[in-house]
Amino acid sequence: MSKFNKGWIKGKHTFSYFKSSKYALLLEWKKAKDPKTNFNIRSCLSQIEDTDLTGITEMVPAYHSAMIYFNSRLTNHDKLIQSIEDLYKPIESKDITNNDIKIIEVNYGFEFGPDLDFVSTHTGLSVEKIIEIHSTTIYDLHFIGFLPGFLYLGGLDKRLDIPRRATPRIRVPSGSVALAAGQTGVYPSDSPGGWHIIGRTEQSFFNPHLNPPTEFEPGMKIKFQVI
């Protein structure tokens, strides 16, 4: 089995490559959930996009990685790796800063946040303090994944880091603002879920009748606001 080795390819840049399937190439950076990594991923993908490499069909970023999907009749892993090695120029994150903050209005607690008391007991913080911490933090939108329009946000205050629910709920209502496992986010549609629900928003995160179907994109700053 040793001939399969680890399969990771290191180039001259800060990320490594992995041939994930016949038509997918994975790029992975070292540090996850890090604003600098998130900036580097966005910068790398936008440089690839600007170069208009043959055969790329879509690129999907995540916390510390990005999948490049391609048409295997038009290109292959090695050609893509070579092109990316050549075209990518690391840039300082201060060169591009997005100061726009997208506000999401939230009804915290009561019937909208059935787990707020649980979070209070678990963290030892008062309900008021939890709401204050959650709604004064400015979050980085790292990427969209899991469900259509689900935002992966970075920057949750460590005091609000609590484990997932022991038993996931079968149905979490659309718009539920929740937290667990060091993360916070909003359920964009009714779905099963294991996070603790602390509030609800009317904000729409995904509309299948629009293209693009969401107004959110990685790199945005997000802030929750009490209404």
């Binding site: 069909t57 879509e58 690129m59 999907v60 970023p61 999948m67 999907y69 990427f143 969209i144 994944g145 899991f146 469900l147 259509p148 329009g149 689900f150 964009p188 995904f206 693009p212 179907p213 969401t214």
Partner: peptide, 10 residues
């Protein structure tokens, strides 16, 4: 449905 995975669309 291709080209929409970055919005979380399967």
């Amino acid at each position: 449905r291709f080209g929409l995975r970055k919005y979380g669309v399967p």
